[in-house]
Design a protein around this nucleic acid. Structure first.
Lengths: 190, 190
DNA sequence: GAATAAAGTTGAACAAGTTCAACTCAAAGA
DNA sequence: TCTTTGAGTTGAACTTGTTCAACTTTATTC
């Protein structure tokens, strides 16, 4: 099983032994998600945390008017989860859908909780991971408040060129918080 | 020293013994910050993490044009920090300023790192805290993308009435990502 | 208590982004 | 291969929010 991608990812966050890595990886099971299939549908209680090996996912909400709003995209080497639903075992507000045939490693909640108990480094791993993610979300919020739609678009495509090419303009617009019609006009004059 | 507020706050995140609480608290030192004084100025490297006992702070960035953008407010019972600068010891992008005479408990980075090592529950505490914060930031981003300025204003004032009353409209507008002139117009027709 | 600075208000002109509708084009399904 | 579906484009009218400037009101400061 090619756990190397996951192992390298974890090593970016913490210093960790090979034994510990093997233990952690042993709880992650591969799963194929076909294009357009859902890893999570809102209302469900999320029981798995995922790490993307291949393909791409979109994580999005649907508001009362039925508008979809993309929270983030997760492609190879990204984590994908609904922390709120996973932690508190309450119905999710999020939807997670494969944009192409994808492969993820999933860890069941029970196993993750056990790992927290048995392997202290796992607490640190997810503490550091969460803190880094927090910083990224704060930055994104500041960008949303200070950049124009055009600037946000250019920032996104230059920061995540690999992901951007996999996406339709509709999906990118939804991530940027604008209509796809307006994105089309932005691109024309870019 | 009235550590009870800090202790109660910590107990919201983890189950913890009184001995452990006492150990943690022993590293937090009280400090008075006068109105308009700064706990952190951008460019500085952040060496302390804070927990607010009294008063209120605004955490904000300043962009190239000189516009201030409020990331969040922290009043009594809130944590105040620049995780990025604190974790990686690099110059901060943030400013943290007291909006009124305030009191915080500060823990020095050295002591916090030592606590992570010596007391495993501290890893868990900040892991859970970060994950909860992450969820809150994700929600706020979704709100910013889906709510109008007026809806955001009403949401803020009804969710944080205690904080909102301490703030000027200029500060609230900056938090909402709109001009204070426009907020004034929103309030008129509200 | 006067002077000054800062916060808040208002209006007019403007810019950014949305909505709706009609259309084109490419891709996927039967 | 034909059909259908969905993505992307464009324009006109509209709404939301900004900018700038002038003004009023409320806090600070000396």
């Amino acid at each position: 099983m090619p756990y190397s991608l996951l192992k390298e990812n974890i090593k970016k966050y913490v210093e960790i032994s090979n034994e510990e890595l093997d233990t952690i990886c042993s709880f992650f099971k591969p799963q194929i998600i076909k294009k357009k299939e859902f890893l999570l549908t809102q209302g469900d209680i999320y029981k798995f945390e995922g790490f993307v090996i291949e393909g791409c996912f979109r994580v999005f909400t649907i508001d009362k008017k039925g508008n979809e709003n993309v929270l983030y995209f997760a492609s190879k080497d990204w984590w994908v989860m609904d922390i709120d639903s996973f932690m508190n075992q309450k119905p999710s507000h999020l939807n997670i859908q494969a944009l192409e045939d994808s492969k993820v490693f999933l860890i069941h909640r029970t196993n993750k909780l056990a790992l927290y108990e048995s392997l202290p480094i796992v607490e640190k791993l997810f503490r550091v991971m969460s803190q880094k993610a927090l910083v990224a979300w704060q930055r994104r919020l500041i960008r949303n408040n200070t950049y124009s739609a055009r600037e946000r678009y250019l920032h996104f495509t230059s920061t995540y060129p690999n992901i951007a090419t996999k996406l339709t303009d509709k999906q990118i617009a939804s991530y940027l918080g604008i209509t796809h019609e307006f994105l089309s006009k932005i691109k024309k004059q870019a």
